[in-house]
Amino acid sequence: MGYRLTIDKHREHAIELMELLQDEIGSELVTAITSASQANEPEIFEQRARVKEMTDIVERLDTPLARQLLSVADNLVKKSVWIMGGDGWAYDIGFGGLDHVIASGKDVNILVLDTEVYSNTGGQKSKATPLGAVAKFAAAGKPSPKKDLGMIAMSYKNVYVASVAMGSNDGQTVRAFMEAEAYPGPSIIIAYSQCIAHGIDMTKGMNQQKLAVESAYWTLYRYNPLLAAAGKNPLLLDSKPPKTHVREYAMNEARFTILKRINPKMSDHYLEESDLAAKEKYDYYAKLAALSYDKA
């Protein structure tokens, strides 16, 4: 957030300074720089060239204003602000800040690498940990379900939200990154990330992602507020209807099978409940995605 504030402030100040030096720089170039949309990479490259042309002129001026302008001119070219972290940060300790930032409307991109545990400290449960998974701090299996961070973000309406799993649909992942970055407001991508803490054969990580989506354990979607502005439903459900039980996914992961051994009754109970919740969640998202946004 601090990065965004600096970039915006320094861009604003650079424009003020360019306008003061308009006679030296040339009004045409100043206008071209200030009005550039920089909507895609070729346009950004063109802007870089324009700013270079401008700074070449300004460098020769060697005045206090010119030196001021040179120190902030880089901010006239679009920068891509990214906030990255894991689920321990995004769902728990950093959630207050994350919530504030997505509510701010500022153009930042947030990538949540969701391993469903605190991976770095050795696999303690977070609010992203699913029901019934055994983690540290949840030695008897987590008794509460995973929080739906995407749904919370979507409630702001002006936040781009994507839930991705590249092992299930890699094209959707790439599209989500492109759309998130292009969206001129806050964006959040929640990315399913397999982890050694799951107790899986790591060579099959991408296959687990596939099974996660097939069972609706994980839902793929993109919520783009620009669609709503255009009178369309902003939510695109990218998952296909579930075709397997969550069990098919979970039984490849030690975090679930451990409980099966130590407390089979609870394990079965949790798995049934998870499966039910997964299917309910899919239905709910499907209904939301089917709502009409036609303003007529």
Partner: peptide
Amino acid sequence: GCGETPYVKLASQLFGDRMVIANATGCS
């Protein structure tokens, strides 16, 4: 076999030459 880094790498391919990153403490 990390599940996180393919996403991080993808972002760096698409936007890396203009990225400013704030990284929360953690694996990443």
